[in-house]
Amino acid sequence: MVNETEPLLVVDDLAVEFRTDEGVVKAVDGAAFTVDRGEIVGVVGESGSGKSVTAMSILGLVKSGRRVRGAIRFRGRDLGTLPAKELRAIRGAEIAMIFQDPMTALNPVVSIGRQIVEALRLHDRKLSKAAARDRAIELLALVGMPDAAARFKQYPHEFSGGMRQRAMIAMAIANGPSLLIADEPTTALDVTIQAQVLDLLRIAQQETQAATLLITHDLGVVAELADRVVVMYAGRVVEQGDVTTVFTAPRHPYTVGLLESLPRLDRDVDELHPIPGSPPSLLTPPPGCPFHPRCPLARDRCRTERPELRVVGNGTTVHRTACHFAEELAALPTEVTR
């Protein structure tokens, strides 16, 4: 039963654990956010903040990890309870993924064209080879591949990094997904190519009307592309809201720290302020707020009581934060404005 009133994707109190020799790693510990139809949501956070594990959980492909709590609902269906076959039918067709490194995510000994054709035929067995081929060339042209028909027969090593990423995007949108997950789509690329690929993601998004979950540690990419942003820290969502609101009036000290540690070209900044300390061990997360050991506002309550995600501000969009003292941040004259 498709529930049209609910957002396209609902991640509800998701917790994923990995058993290791040293103990249980709580990679994701109560992540919650939603993605609406056609919306671009950026998920930002440091390495190990749980953003990639969250993405893999959506696809039901967390290797050796275990979902201990929570639900992931896509179009009203709980992906965790679907049989493997139905899940496979969703993967690649309704939820598609763009990988970080297009060199390794493409099979080096199969031509680009054939890989796209197979992505198409995987979900539509009745599609004829000729029709799939035409559609693949069409897709390559759509992602701005010059001379698509000739490129169709080439192998990944004959493509530049940017071209490979284009091919990956073509493959991802091949089956007209309603959700695209882009995992660090620009990290492996040259700065000059990054901008092109971001443009392309925007085009792909407009073309397919697919909601996009943009996983990145690059705040610039989020500012450039996303409608909303979800900030993750130590496996939890610490702040989420409209990109402009979160970036101009952050209500979590971690977000403030992230923004202040960012070099900017548009403003004269004398000094960058890195966040002191390092992310907590997920084997033994600190009690209370996971950010308190590094937080300038931390006090006793932060060390004992875990802050829940709550609505702050009175803007037109929903802005949530998991900080006991978000209002104090609002009172501070923040330097960080767009």
């Binding site: 696809l59 492909l61 039918a89 993967r91 598609a96 993924m97 099979n107 995987l122």
Partner: peptide, 9 residues
């Protein structure tokens, strides 16, 4: 790329 194939269903 095998992981990518798995992700593609």
């Amino acid at each position: 790329y095998l992981h990518a194939a798995r992700v593609a269903g």
